[in-house]
Amino acid sequence: MSPSRFLIGVVDDDPHVLESFEELLSSGGYRVSAFHSGASFLAAGGFPRVDCLITDIEMPVVDGWELLRIARRDYRDLPVILITGIDLEARQLLDAQAARHVFKKPFDGREFLRVLDDILG
């Protein structure tokens, strides 16, 4: 399987989780650029480079909501997938409408790749 032309940005502050997402996406044929914080993603100039952003919500300083806000403001067409370890409150679910999809940990890897394929397909 040849690597995809799509580059996926992944952000999660848990190194094991980040690693596993990277692995999952690689197995699905995507090129992956992994970041352990929202701030490092921004610092590396991640937004203009990636074709899709997958980010955990609950992170210190620059969290998933902030990245989503920036994406919606400056990178209107960039698809964003949110991942959360907690149940979102009603208001947060509304905010999450700005993302293409929200996955609650733990999630089905097959479903995850299918959604990503649909988005980038």
């Binding site: 989780v17 596993s20 997402f21 999952l24 197995s27 699905g28 733990p106 890897g109």
Partner: peptide, 24 residues
């Protein structure tokens, strides 16, 4: 719940990746 969900999420993702690598 949060404490447990983190390793579980990683495990599930890795499990599916492993499966994918093997079925490639």
């Amino acid at each position: 719940a949060h404490e447990i969900n983190q390793p579980l999420a990683a495990m599930v993702a890795n499990g599916y990746a492993c499966q994918t690598w093997l079925s490639a």
